[in-house]
Amino acid sequence: MKPLRESFVILALAVIPALLSLWLHPQRPVLAWTKPGVEEVELATATGWSPPVLWVDARAGEAFQHGHVPDAIPLNEASWEQQLPGFLAAWRPGTRIVVYCDSRACDASQGVALRFERELKLPEIYVLKGGWASWQQTHR
């Protein structure tokens, strides 16, 4: 019984700083019923845009080496500090950014796109619907 009693005390005590954090933290998360995210774009729409359009490959590991959208820049959260300079060198004001990862099942592209919004305050950011898989289907 002692562990159970003590665990209830800890569970209750942890609520206090959590609520304070939700109220006072300068980076508190957005409170909403649905997840705020970056707008998704169909491949046909993105490829039809007039330049400049910058493609960003958010896949981790060596996936980029095995194939990527032509002229895409690799930038994933695991290697953010190392790869960001390459992205910044390629970006210009007025550029539309399209981020993609493996497929519809991955969230890496949303993660990178949200970091663009929060940390770099970049406008015109989109996530490719269907990811690299949709590009491969169209460009076999």
């Binding site: 800890i10 942890a14 019923w33 997840k35």
Partner: peptide, 19 residues
């Protein structure tokens, strides 16, 4: 769902710190 993810995302770190 997103609201639960927010609740857990805010509460869980403080629970981990306390424990």
């Amino acid at each position: 769902p997103y609201p639960l993810a927010v609740a857990l995302g805010v509460y869980l770190p403080w629970l981990e710190l306390s424990c």
